[in-house]
């Protein structure tokens, strides 16, 4: 290939800049969040006393599995220790997905990491919730044009609460936790149920990104 041809080729490529509106519209294929009101755990009308008490216990005892991706992992120690003290809400770190209730995803997810996160999420026991942290999980954030990070987490996992910010400060994290507590008390935090109901849709999206799909059928190992 001679040099002139290469220069022509390069000039066609737009390496820097904002995508045009048409390009973005083409990319917004079937972007409808699946879990808005469909994932209710229990209806208000049929809410029993037992369920009320259980929800009370659930919301005040959140075992958090912090999946420390990206820069958000540094906000978690600040949130948990003396200054902001998330333990007063009953939050507590869980070491393994078996014991955890909340999966806290703290930043961008590369496709390589997404595979591990999905496995972690599927090993958790119901009822389980996902808190997505930072603008990277909402729309890609500053990694919107990266070749290796996903842009919107809720196409691959059901997200109960988003915490916006880059990075969100510990106050915002606590705000998100309180929001999740409210959802749990009302019986609206049904991400796990939603995931089961729409598993085909989620699997389709996941397999689009994760090319070498070698997941186990069940997690009894």
């Amino acid at each position: 290939m001679d040099n002139n041809k290469n220069i022509e080729q390069v000039s066609k490529i737009k390496t820097i800049g904002i995508p045009t509106q048409e390009e973005i519209k083409q990319a917004q294929i079937d972007f409808s969040p699946r879990c808005t009101s469909a994932g209710r755990v229990n209806d208000k009308e049929t809410q029993k006393m037992v369920e009320y008490i259980m929800n009370f216990a659930r919301k005040h005892s959140l075992f958090v599995l912090a999946y420390g991706t990206g820069c958000g992992a540094i906000e978690i120690p600040a949130t948990m220790t003396s200054r902001y003290d998330a333990e007063r809400f009953g939050m507590r770190g869980a070491a393994t997905p078996r014991q955890a209730d909340v999966l806290l995803i703290t930043g961008y997810l590369s496709t390589k990491t997404l595979k591990r996160v999905i496995r972690v999420y599927e090993q958790m026991q119901d009822p389980k919730y996902v808190i997505a942290f930072g603008s990277c999980t909402i729309n890609g954030g500053m990694y919107f044009d990266s070749y290796n990070t996903i842009n919107a987490l809720d196409r691959y996992l059901p997200v109960d609460v988003y915490i916006a910010g880059c990075m969100p400060r510990p106050e915002s994290v606590i705000n998100g936790i309180v929001k999740l507590q409210g959802l749990i008390q009302n019986g609206n935090a049904g991400g796990g149920k939603c995931y089961k109901d729409n598993l085909d849709w989620y699997r389709e999206n996941q397999q689009k990104v994760i090319k070498n799909w070698d997941f186990p059928d069940d997690y009894n190992w």
Partner: peptide, 28 residues
């Protein structure tokens, strides 16, 4: 928690933890 100058969880926190753990499902 108080030694670390935090508010800390309530004293009955372990009972809530137990209640929540007993309300979880198990599929393994």
């Amino acid at each position: 928690a108080r030694a670390q100058n935090r508010v800390g969880p309530p004293v009955y926190q372990n009972f809530l933890d137990l209640l929540k753990l007993q309300s979880k499902t198990t599929n393994i």
